[in-house]
């Protein structure tokens, strides 16, 4: 049994909040650069150039890439042989509080969804726990902007809808979103599970590096096919037309019920941010 003080999480979460918001992950930089090289529509080229200039400025000056520094989604993979002393949730929220204050990040969370008063410190985090074998805690902070979150959808398809029904739904969600989620986007897809599990799969799909394809060749091929279909829509960067509507489609799946085929599409923008550290 390894003992970890909950307060140790605070420092890590604080640092990850700031770094994730200012430094675009290398895989995303690679996808955007590749897209620019493959784009031939003049307006689209200009926008991609500006997007590259933007993340370069943010990186060099350590300022937020986007003003929507998001709600802090925090994923903890906790080793079963770790014992944490103190409140994990309090320690994580303290890290968010410090990170969003010291990092000059925007406070974008309201305490109540209908009465809408800003909490002033971007807490609470959206906190998820997974128990895994081992003696370590893996902490991932994924700030999530809501321009793209608002364009996400979930549908309980019928088993008879099959893969064609799933593809049609996924492409339609992206087309309906059009310019709103700041294309080029990353498309996180969850297939299977229950209503809630499916949505979480889609969120987790956005945290997989765009360098990696689904390990199952069937789903890797489906990711490639969906990316091609989405980029044939012509929405383009910012929705002004062009080849580059999406930079990647990441699919995660889970077993599901004999009666169901849940499909969730969680959209993220060209500022798809996440950073992990192991404690």
């Amino acid at each position: 049994m390894r003992e970890i003080q909950a307060s140790a999480l605070t420092e890590v979460v604080k640092r990850l909040c700031i770094e994730a918001n200012c430094h675009l992950p290398k895989d995303m930089q690679a996808r955007i650069t590749e897209a620019r090289a493959g784009e031939d529509w003049p307006g689209a080229c200009e926008i991609l150039d500006r997007i590259i200039e933007n993340y370069t400025i943010a990186d060099e000056r350590s300022v937020p890439i986007c003003q929507d520094t998001g709600v802090a989604c925090v994923f903890l993979e906790i080793g079963q042989d770790v014992h944490v002393s103190g409140s994990i949730a309090d320690a994580v929220n303290e890290g968010v509080r410090q990170g969003y204050s010291e990092g000059y990040l925007r406070k974008s969370v309201v305490r109540d969804p209908l009465n809408r008063v800003n909490t002033g410190d971007n807490t609470p985090a959206m906190l998820y726990y997974d128990l895994v074998p081992g003696y370590a805690i893996r902490i991932t902070v994924a700030p999530k902007g809501f321009g793209s979150e608002n364009m996400s959808q979930l549908k309980m398809l019928k088993p008879s809808d099959g893969v064609e029904g799933a593809k049609e739904f996924i492409v339609r969600v992206v087309e309906e979103a059009g310019p709103n989620p700041c294309p080029p986007i990353v498309v996180g897809v969850g297939i299977g599970g229950t209503f809630d599990k499916c949505a979480l799969l889609a969120k987790k799909a956005l945290m997989r590096s765009t360098d990696e394809r689904n390990p199952d060749p069937y789903y890797a091929a489906l990711e490639a096919e969906l990316l091609a279909r989405i980029n044939a829509l012509g929405v383009g960067p910012q929705g002004f037309g062009g080849k580059t509507t999406a930079l990647a489609v990441n699919i995660e799946t889970a077993p599901t019920h004999i009666a169901g085929l849940p499909v969730a599409v969680n959209i993220n923008c060209h500022v798809t941010r996440h950073k992990s550290e192991v404690l």
Partner: peptide, 13 residues
């Protein structure tokens, strides 16, 4: 008018 969504660092200049 449209400004480039997600280009907050650039536009702030």
């Amino acid at each position: 008018f449209g400004a480039i969504g997600g280009a907050g660092a650039l536009l702030s200049k």
